[in-house]
Amino acid sequence: MIAESVTPPRQITGERRQRIQAFAVAWLLALGVWQITTFISGGWVPSLWRIFEALGEDATTANIYAEMWITLRRIFISFGAATAIGIGLGVAMGLSRRVTAFFRPIVVMGLAVPDIVYIIVAILVLGTDESSGLIAMVLALVPFVVNIVIGGVKSRDPGLDEMSSVYRLQRHRYLVDVVGWQVSPALLAATRTCFAFSWKLVVLVEALSQPRGIGAQVYYSFRLLRPDHMIAQALLFIVVLRIVEAIMFGPLERKLLGWMQ
């Protein structure tokens, strides 16, 4: 119990000022370093201005948005599937030691296998259509989700479990009311991580195998030796996705975790 002291208004704006300061310094420094790199590499690394121009060109063609839409669709499908499977498996494993023992080696190996391998193997086995890429992504993502969810489930309060059995709660009530809410922060963390990985992974998948999608575009720009476009497209992609991330998870986090305050 600590006495709350009133923060004088000048302190609050001071805090804001510091954040803006930091923002400015960070960006100026980064851009400065980039320009130096451009200079050192003798123009091989595109200058900021060149990137800006390329950005302008790309952002105004409709093409890029069509590609982005394709990529987004793939992200959502694989992220959705991986989260669902991962949560299901994670909860099952977290609740039962036998299930954990059974699946543990797969999950450990799953975590360790490089994503490329999944993609290559998927292509070999299933051919080169879109589905193989998606399956590869799901395979790569599930172990991460499972890992986080298991952590959350295993760290639940055993006292509440005991209470549930004393009061003879039914299985599904137990899962939802007792386990579910305790596990919700972990579920949220798992979902966020899964989404974050999925959009980074999709770039790789597209670069390797698909003719369409942002990742493929970035790779083409790379191949055609157009670093300015490569960086511009990458930037567009990253910015859009961070916005999507913020929109998806901001309000969700507040809603689900409100009871913890």
Partner: peptide, 28 residues
């Protein structure tokens, strides 16, 4: 100030897809 600056950089770099980082480093 530097704490916040580094904080921003770290946040930014968390978000770079490794493929893009690889292609970029290839260029540099």
């Amino acid at each position: 100030l530097w704490g916040r600056v580094v904080d921003r950089y770290v946040g930014l770099m968390l978000g770079i897809p490794s493929t893009i980082a690889a292609l970029l480093s290839l260029y540099i």
